[in-house]
Write a protein that binds this DNA or RNA. Structure first.
Lengths: 126, 126
DNA sequence: TCCGCTACGAACTTTTTGGTGTGTAAACTG
DNA sequence: CAGTTTACACACCAAAAAGTTCGTAGCGGA
């Protein structure tokens, strides 16, 4: 299997390539929120707990550069930007959904009922 | 979305969980070779160029601990061990195959014909 | 006029991941 | 009886990824 070099990065295989694009800790979580609706920066930040500003900014920038999301800047004060999925981004959602289901199965095998945990979180807030 | 802690590790979401199990640079390449047949340590090493002994050993150990592969040790000298997929490992192959196809599509969009490159590599060796 | 608001940028530190280089058991070979 | 072979372990090192802290533009409101 040959190595592929693009943008000064080495890719060992197609999976590696895919995960350099949508992998890492934050890209999928961000894409996943945007699957429902367009969101502004601060809105995404509220939805994804733990994410730091730096990571969110970096993630959004890369996803935009790679064509997964669109960015709309409103020339207002205080500033406002809105992010939405592109067609490419919507395709990525299918992959994330697939991986998510696999992950849920693995978690069940390990005795973790994730979806039940999500339900409990919701009830706490009410 | 709640955090899950297992084996002293924090998982933010199901995808994260799945990729902690079969992600990283080498786990999928190793599983992918084993999809065809049982292989011994040195055989895997020859198939996956670039992989170091440490990484191969570590990868195999984790995959075994997580139940993706079986290890058979032959009490011989020099030592011989054989690795094969478990049922869980075979399920992972489906996921890898899915991700692989997605990666191939992304590469095509980026103007890289990976499969053609693989063909060329083969011809070189003949 | 001073403050707050939003969406960042830059510098720095920590954590995680991967790589290198060396050592070892133990039987067989010449 | 020294050399070879295989599948590792261990100690150390480099690079990549992520996290923390601080700073900033510029308008509207008190």
């Amino acid at each position: 299997m040959p190595d592929v070099i693009l943008d000064n990065k080495v890719f060992y295989n197609p999976v590696d390539f895919a995960l350099k694009k949508i992998g890492g800790t934050w890209k999928m979580p961000v894409l996943w929120r945007l699957r429902i609706k367009t969101m502004r920066y601060s809105e995404i930040q509220e939805h994804i707990k733990h994410i730091s500003q730096k990571m969110l900014t970096q993630t959004l920038k890369q996803l935009e550069a790679d064509g997964f999301i669109d960015k709309k800047i409103f020339a207002e004060v205080p500033p406002r930007t809105e992010y939405s999925l592109t067609e490419k981004g919507r395709k990525a959602i299918e992959v994330i959904d697939y991986l998510r289901n696999y992950g849920l199965n693995l978690m069940l095998e390990a005795g973790i009922n994730y979806q039940e945990m999500v339900e409990q979180e919701k009830r706490k807030k009410i």
